[in-house]
Design a protein around this nucleic acid. Structure first.
Length: 109
DNA sequence: TCGCTGACGTAAG
DNA sequence: TCTTACGCCAGCG
């Protein structure tokens, strides 16, 4: 399901909400699903607004599995805490076993 | 209304 | 192999 009538940001929110428990994905993967591989930035920037959108932004990391957006969370390690509570191992802002917990949005579409 | 900025990713030098 | 530059779109001074 890919609502193309919505704005790019809204599309991002839709995809992020599809991320299952205990899984994570990358900005680039989301951008790719939206058909704009080069718009990975927008995905990240969209997350900035996602704070008020009921979106699990903590499940979205960059391509390296790095928690680049953790600064935007309340607590210093809130993002890490959330991920770990879901079974995702995080160390030094870096997701361990990234390939194991990585969820490809393409599969759901 | 115009311009700057912002959770990334890829290509090229 | 490492560093630099560019593209994408929306929100907010």
């Amino acid at each position: 399901m890919k609502p193309e009538t919505l704005h790019f940001y809204d599309k991002v929110y839709e995809v992020v909400r599809q991320i299952p428990y205990g899984k994570v994905t990358s900005y680039g993967a989301i951008a790719n699903v939206l058909g704009a591989k080069r718009s990975a930035r927008l995905v990240g920037y969209a997350m900035n607004n996602a704070h008020d959108k009921n979106v699990p932004a903590h499940r979205v990391v960059n391509r390296n599995g790095l928690l680049t957006g953790k600064h935007h969370f309340q607590g210093t390690h809130l993002m890490q805490q959330l991920l770990e509570s879901e079974g995702v191992i995080v160390k030094n802002d870096q997701i361990q076993n990234f390939e194991s917990v990585f969820w490809d949005p393409m599969k759901d579409f």
